[in-house]
Design a protein around this nucleic acid. Structure first.
Lengths: 136, 136
DNA sequence: TATGCAATCTGTAGTCACTACAGCTACAAG
DNA sequence: CTTGTAGCTGTAGTGACTACAGATTGCATA
């Protein structure tokens, strides 16, 4: 944990695991507020930035888009989210994820089947390429 | 199936299910050869283009990147692929897919657990937001 | 105080695989 | 010959960053 109550961007990056360039990017798109600066125009952060950025990182890790994270942060027209709002967003996100998993598992099955037909020898002729080429 | 042996881009698009803009994009990045043109500079395709584009579309549907498709097409330095090459690419792709599935299922589990704790009522206080905010 | 060097700054361009659009020209049917 | 659809080029936008160039700042040591 950071002991100092003010720290530069590198420390914020290290503490949150968010890339320095990404932090500046988040500032540019208004996801985190522009922090105060030193006389030399270097950014100075405090614990509130650390918390907010940690929230963003976890949201991203859970697969929310930046826009969804923005919404979760209650940034949309200053509107405070209710628990019901958040649950609805989460449920719809889970539905998306389940669909992706289904699609990927199907892909996996098809590719595995194709690979099984493939002897893996040194000839240029291959059942996988055949399967991709054959008429509809 | 197309009966004419020469056809314009719209017909190629309809026959393959690949968007017109995407076909031109594929040409620009060298994935399909530039076809001959009419006097009015409109592209004229034949069955070879149709086959190649179908191959590309199927490869994409199986989740290969354009660079992998390019490789499967044997475009990389004119080197012909052996069956072993193709099998190796496919296997590594399957490994990628399995990893993605694992990650997504984990995400699904975490989100489902979070959503279960959430009463879904109208108060602004929400266990999901709490979980994202809490210290590490 | 001087110096050296790591950290930070801004701004731009690149990534992937397209998609969208503006403003133009070509072609086929009636 | 007109009308309408199809096609043309070139550029910019998408999401979520990442990479870089070239400048400046800040801090520690000599």
């Amino acid at each position: 944990m950071l002991r100092a109550d003010h720290f530069p961007i590198g420390a914020l990056s290290a503490a949150t695991g968010v890339n320095i360039e990404t932090i500046r990017y988040y500032e540019k798109i208004g996801l985190i507020p522009a922090p105060p600066r030193t006389d030399g125009r270097q950014r100075v952060y405090d614990v509130s930035h650390l918390k907010r950025l940690t929230f963003i990182r976890r949201g991203r890790e859970l697969g929310f888009s930046l826009d969804q994270v923005r919404e979760l942060l209650g940034l949309v027209r200053g509107h405070d989210l209710t628990c019901a709002n958040v649950k609805a967003m989460t449920d719809s996100h889970v539905t998306d994820i389940r669909r992706k998993v289904r699609d990927l598992r199907k892909l996996e099955r098809v590719l595995t089947e194709l690979a099984a037909k493939c002897a893996g020898d040194a000839v240029p002729d291959c059942p996988i390429l055949d399967a991709l080429s054959k008429g509809s």
